Computed example of a mutant assay.
Amino acid sequence: MKVRKQNISFLKSGSGSLNSRIMLPITWVRELGLSQEEREVYIYQIGEEIVIRKTPMNFDKKEAAKIAFEEVKQIILTKQYIEHVEIIEIIKTIIDSYFFNIEEKERNDKVVALVSVLRDSFLDKKYEFVLDNKKQYFFDKEKYNFKTVEELEKYFQISHEKI
């Protein structure tokens, strides 16, 4: 791994909006196979990291689940629970960042696969879930001991209009 400390430049456009720019060492750019003719890159934000690649990332179910798990964990730390549909949205966003122009059926297959890996990650960790016919919530089982969706919703005062 190569490391270089850089500053980011912040520029104001003519319309007043703020843009940022960072200079990359030309040797690194060349090592990626980039040039003035071949300058297309894929940029990913993964947690607190920014990854720049010449080619798109290959889908790795475990790596994608790790990314999803970290995002879900942050939400649980903030609001103490997360609903299953929110997890699905996070997973769809992650899958969309791996693939461009993916067909709906393939996307859904990948979502299902990723949900199962993520759910196993949750069950191996300190998270628990409650579910009923319509909703499923995950929460920190070291802090809470909910047996039903109703208990969780009542405790956090979740109104049914929002759901």
Rank of each mutant, 00 (worst) to 15 (best):
K125F: 14
Y137I: 13
Q74K: 15
N108A: 08
S20P: 01
T55C: 01
Q157F: 03
E71K: 13
L24F: 15
H84I: 05
M57T: 06
M1R: 09
E89K: 12
E86H: 09
G47C: 11
K92R: 14
L114N: 08
V29H: 07
V41N: 02
V149Q: 06
F122S: 00
H160E: 12
I87Q: 00
R53H: 14
A113Q: 12
N19Y: 05
K126S: 08
I50C: 10
K105E: 14
T148C: 10
T55H: 05
D140K: 02
E128Y: 08
S13D: 08
I8P: 03
N108Q: 15
F69V: 09
Y144N: 00
K79S: 13
N19A: 00
K92H: 13
I163M: 07
V29I: 14
M1E: 10
K62L: 09
L24H: 03
E142S: 06
V41I: 12
F146C: 02
I43K: 10
I46A: 04
K73L: 05
K62Y: 14
L77D: 15
A64N: 06
A113M: 13
S116M: 05
V112I: 15
L24M: 13
M57W: 12
A68E: 10
E40F: 05
E31P: 00
L77S: 08
Q6S: 09
I8R: 01
M1K: 10
L118G: 02
Q74G: 13
F138A: 02
K92F: 11
L11N: 04
S9I: 14
R39W: 04
I52H: 04
V111Q: 04
Q80E: 14
Y155N: 07
P56S: 08
V3W: 07
E150I: 14
E38G: 04
E86G: 15
V111R: 02
G47S: 09
I67T: 05
A64I: 13
H84M: 05
F69T: 05
A68D: 10
E153R: 09
D120N: 12
R53N: 14
K105R: 06
K61M: 11
Y98P: 08
L32A: 06
S121G: 11
L152M: 03
A65Q: 01
I91E: 01
L123E: 11
